[in-house]
Design a binder for these strands. Structure first.
Lengths: 184, 184
DNA sequence: ACCTTACATTCCACTGTTGACATGTCGAGG
DNA sequence: CCTCGACATGTCAACAGTGGAATGTAAGGT
């Protein structure tokens, strides 16, 4: 259901064709809500039929430029303010953690260390992004910066957690291994 | 694709029927990989046909107890060690942040503060869980504790970020509002 | 004139997930 | 003996998301 709001949100800045929209998904929203072409065009049709968007202009190559309607803007505002936030449910990463015990301690530590490395890599990537983009005062920049900061904090947190977890596993394996005659 | 590994993982501890499995999903895995009954039974059939599981015993009421096979265990290990981790892509929360500018600064600050509250609430809930469960030395407890710590760190990070973001929005709105005659 | 690249839309097949519905059996307590 | 709750499996329709193929037009360079 979020795709429609992503589209309404992008169109609230300025009108665009499906093609334009795709590019904007690829640049600004890749990291928060990727979408494919089939999805975008399909949803564009539905939203127009529902009156949340309208065809503002037609151009060459059958280009249809869509603009958000008052109704669409109201819907978007409603989503931002009233709609129930759905909490993050699935995490493949944590699912793996749950079953780490079927690996040897060494393998588990390796896994967790790799995760830490990957997080560090992503963190560095975001840092680069921060340096590369010239952050203006336009709304997209302002909000993008907030989201970026979230990414930065998330990756830092994840890296620390993974290193901590690796340590835990290591210690546990030492304790369980060193004293062969430990009580039950 | 992760559902199958969640099931293999649960069955690697001990055999279970579809019904048993459902309960174990609801208890231990609700927060990392929820599953519905239709999914579980469907996947159970597929996994059995693929030779990753086998019907170890049959009981009353048509009960079929599934056990993981050597092949299934190998597949699970492979997933844990070799399989490419897919990184977190979608975040409804960050999508909302991207479009916060269509709200008034006050509304945006309210939204972010509410998010902070919610994160704090979930953090408290996890703390309670930590206190309530008697954490043994069994593998499920050990790994569960690692995942729980992740949840704790995540919710703490998110709360802090949301408070920080609210502050940013507030400051920006003051700067843009207070000095009516500010240059461009 | 020709060719390539960018623009632009539409359709389709497949997988994963949800939620509801259907169907039935066993065991325990009244 | 009977009924109710727990046990137990299965099917279906719908939707969201993925990836790719098909189709074609306009513009720019050589």
């Amino acid at each position: 259901m979020s795709l429609r709001y992503a589209m309404l949100g992008l169109l609230s800045e300025r009108p665009a064709s499906g093609y334009d929209l795709m590019k904007r998904f690829e640049t600004s929203l890749t990291n928060v809500w990727p979408a494919t072409q089939s999805q975008v065009y399909g949803e564009l049709g539905k939203l127009a039929k529902a009156g949340l968007l309208e065809v503002a202009a037609e151009g060459p190559r059958g280009r249809k430029e869509y603009a958000i309607t008052e109704e669409g803007l109201a819907e978007l505002r409603h989503w931002l303010t009233e709609a129930p936030r759905e909490r993050m449910r699935r995490s493949e990463a944590m699912l793996r953690v749950f079953f780490l015990n079927i690996l040897t301690p060494l393998e588990a530590v390796t896994y967790l260390s790799t995760e830490a490395e990957r997080a560090a890599g992503r963190h560095a990537g975001l840092k680069e992004l921060e340096a590369a983009v010239d952050w203006g005062d336009d709304p997209l920049s302002v909000n993008g910066r907030l989201a970026l900061e979230y990414g930065l904090r998330f990756t830092a947190m994840y890296e620390e957690w993974a290193r901590w977890a690796a340590e835990q596993v290591q210690e546990k394996s030492k304790r369980g291994n060193g004293t062969t005659g430990d009580a039950n």
